[in-house]
Design a protein around this nucleic acid. Structure first.
Length: 377
DNA sequence: AATTCAGTCAACCGCAAACCG
DNA sequence: CCGGTTTGCGGTTGACTGAAT
């Protein structure tokens, strides 16, 4: 019997723990049922009974199995400890990454997360999160709930320290991967904002355009942007809806979104008229619609998954591991080029970008260092 | 050697959803 | 549909461990 072999190993572990009186001290509730750590004998009774009869009604089980425990306690002991398919021991890098990915979408839905990790219990994952991953994220300056850089003043210092020590933190391998994705999201965000800017300037002349030279992208009069350029940029942000993976959820469903229309292509509804755009989140673990529906993510989590069919943006980007900037990166980028756009709308010249008027923040500087960001400029 | 303290994890508690008559 | 029961889930607790002092 598979479970029994595992069980005897557990008995030995448990014997040691009981000897050392590990865990809560036993006490009795009002009905006289035993609480606290399980003895090897109790474990054996429970395993024997479930192997023979299945658990059936948990409420009835203790009596039938000869245990002086409540059904709830028996269920917990079985599901979290005695079940034969439980995988014990250290979490692997893959498991850690999966937990991070799923937690960024699902939040503290431990049972939903556990369902993606065979052999791991929700309790185990919860403990691992609270004792390891949460702390690591905080240490790196991320809000463990939103998976985004913390914006409160107390977080600034650890965040900067974390950035400064990124190389030393190379052993945080999976977290680095996480950070890479977050940074990629920052680039996507920048593209969104730049796109917004493009669309805005196409529908109304920007203040920045007044008196600007004709070869300055950001300051160029709106008519100088081709629809093709805008479309190309949009393509780099939005995976094609009918991807080969029919279950994948696209970042933005243009066919149903009010943002579907591009100026000059169909009806003109600029992105700036939309509610705040969420930063697209990417996940290495494929998520399907069922997962999302089951998980019922809270409204503040807009769920995206990155398709691999984006024609212009490699994914994930190969750039350095830098977390994404705060969700509101404000002013339009002031971008200067030394030559003009070609007929396809590609900038074939050297381009430098900066944030209009204000000294760039750490995040903005990092973004400006990213070659991917310059692809759009 | 003794003490302190942060980390770990099994187990409990209470609430809410699901189930059932 | 309703009310009672059962099950599942997430948050919290607290004893043990081991490193630091």
């Amino acid at each position: 019997m598979v479970g029994y072999e595992g069980g005897s190993q557990i008995f030995e572990e448990n014997k040691t723990k009981i000897k050392k009186n590990m865990g809560r001290s036993p006490c009795c509730d009002e009905s006289g049922l035993k609480k606290g750590p399980w003895t090897p004998e109790e474990d054996q009774k429970l395993i024997k009974y479930i192997h023979k009869h299945g658990h059936g009604s948990w409420r009835a089980l203790p009596k039938l199995a000869g245990l002086n425990r409540c059904g709830k306690s028996c269920r917990l002991r079985w599901t979290n400890y005695l079940r034969p398919d439980i995988k014990r021991g250290k979490f692997s890098q893959e498991e850690e990454q999966t937990i991070l990915n799923l937690h960024s979408v699902l939040g503290n839905k431990w049972s939903a997360i556990a369902s993606h990790l065979p052999g791991r219990t929700d309790n185990e994952i919860k403990n691992f999160w609270n004792t390891h991953l949460k702390k690591k994220l905080i240490q790196m300056g991320f809000d463990p709930m939103t998976h985004r850089p913390r914006t409160d003043i107390f977080s600034t210092l650890p965040q900067l320290i974390a950035l400064a020590n990124l190389k030393e933190m190379i052993d945080y391998h999976s977290l680095e991967e996480h950070a890479v994705r977050l940074q990629a999201e920052a680039v996507q965000m920048a593209k969104f904002q730049y796109l917004q800017y493009l669309l805005q300037t196409q529908t109304q002349p920007s203040a920045a355009s007044v008196g600007a030279s004709s070869n300055n992208i950001a300051n160029t009069p709106t008519s100088c942007f081709s629809d093709l350029e805008t479309f190309n940029l949009l393509n780099s942000l939005v995976p094609i809806k009918d991807s080969p993976d029919s279950n994948s959820i696209t970042q933005l469903d243009l066919s149903s979104s009010s943002a579907a229309s591009l100026p000059g292509l169909t009806n003109s509804i600029p992105f700036s008229h939309l509610p705040d755009l969420q930063i697209p989140c990417s996940y290495q673990t494929p998520l399907n619609k069922d997962t999302i529906n089951q998980a019922n993510p809270p409204p503040e989590f807009t769920v995206f998954s990155q398709g691999n069919n984006s024609p212009n943006s490699p994914w994930p980007p190969s750039s350095s591991s830098t977390p994404c900037p705060p969700s509101k990166v404000a002013p339009p980028f002031v971008t200067q080029t030394t030559s003009s756009l070609n007929t396809l709308g590609d900038a074939s010249s050297t381009t430098t970008s900066s944030y209009g008027g204000e000294a760039p923040t750490v995040w903005q500087e990092l973004l400006l260092e990213d070659p991917l960001f310059h692809e759009i400029a």
